[in-house]
Design a protein around this nucleic acid. Structure first.
Lengths: 208, 208
DNA sequence: CTGATACGGTAATAACCATTACCAAGCAAG
DNA sequence: CTTGCTTGGTAATGGTTATTACCGTATCAG
């Protein structure tokens, strides 16, 4: 009944575990890792400190689990089911819109900030992010561009480089400013406009 | 001789002050804000803790001063002296190269990370960054694009939007990955290549 | 040379916090 | 019903740290 370290047999739907993660999200994302004490989390989630050590091993384990599952649920649904889209333009626009919508969520922004801040001390966070989001999106995008290139629709040298450029173009300068707190998250309209503008510019440049 | 809070009359070249800032940079950027103690800084810089409280008021004051002066010195030299460049392409490439070189410095990356991490707790950091870097670069770039548009060289709707897109394109996906620790800072060759590629793509799209 | 003032260094203060030990209560098996 | 065990809550523990008090010393004026 006890593996010596962390409860693993408990179902993921354990309400106790979920309450801890919710409270941890609220506090870690608002106050940062160092300024959130285990007592704070318990005060918000209820239960006792023992639960944290039983479920997650220690404070850092809770933090890692939070970021992992948060990233997981966020990036799910980023890739569309099918790569075979008749229209390259609308396919790219749709992808860009989903990406911007996702990155603009306050929770995503807060998670990114706190993760980046703790990255030097918790290097595993880089791998978590890598597996979850960026790599998957980049791979999908590379594939789409490569196929379009093979069909002769666009003229690019390296599909992966082009995919990286496209991602940068979609984020534009706005995302940078949002992360720095210089700009509030965009409205749905601005997201749509931004996505269209980025795809328009990109395709104008690479269209064969 | 004493304003009641912080030494202000001391010359900026005070070697004691500089030693404190150097030690603070080394430690804050490597270990983060919370994991760097005032004692650590003193152990590295020499002198006594009183110096920190005399020069900077407290730990946070030292941190803010560090980021402010670091950003200042980093972003100086980003804007070229003259906007009147004969060749738009070479002007943009040169700017992109300077920007990428600057953003790729390990110190710049570390500063960005720790600043982003502490942003929710020290909101003044946003203003520091805004004044120092992004706004100045964006303004200069907007100006360049607007003039090129007036000369009929390029076809864009909104110069500022276009400038934002250009910045995003220059950073591409690489900078994102670098911040997350998924990629090492680029070599000078890659910076040059990246700058050329971004400008090429951008101009291909907007050239009238 | 002498006195006072400001400054640097050390030691104390006071609070905080992650983690663990301890204890009581519920539950299952016999 | 009772006994042993698992679980949850509370209270230590042990270490750390930002900030301040104190004291000897050096510096400068007279």
């Amino acid at each position: 009944m006890w593996n010596g370290k962390i409860r693993r047999m408990t179902l993921d739907e354990d309400p106790r575990r979920k309450a801890l993660l919710d409270a941890a999200a609220e506090l870690f994302f608002k106050q940062g890792y160092a300024d959130t004490s285990v007592d704070d989390i318990i005060a918000r989630a209820g239960g006792s400190k023992r639960a944290i050590y039983a479920f997650f091993g220690n404070k850092q384990g809770l933090f890692e689990a939070l970021l992992r599952e948060n990233a997981q649920s966020m990036f799910d649904g980023l890739e569309p089911g099918t790569t075979e889209t008749s229209n390259l333009s609308s396919s790219l626009i749709s992808f860009a819109e989903r990406l911007l919508t996702l990155l603009s969520q306050p929770r995503a922004i807060a998670a990114f900030r706190v993760a980046v801040g703790e990255l030097p001390r918790i290097p595993v966070l880089a791998a978590i992010f890598n597996e979850m989001g960026p790599e998957r999106g980049l791979t999908w995008l590379t594939d789409v561009l490569e196929k379009a290139h093979d069909r002769g629709e666009i003229d690019i040298d390296d599909p992966r480089e082009a995919a990286g450029q496209f991602l940068g173009l979609v984020r534009g300068n706005d995302y940078f400013e949002i992360i720095l707190g210089l700009r509030s998250p965009p409205s749905a309209e601005r997201v749509a406009q931004q996505a269209r503008a980025a795809c328009g510019l990109f395709l104008k440049a690479v269209r064969a």
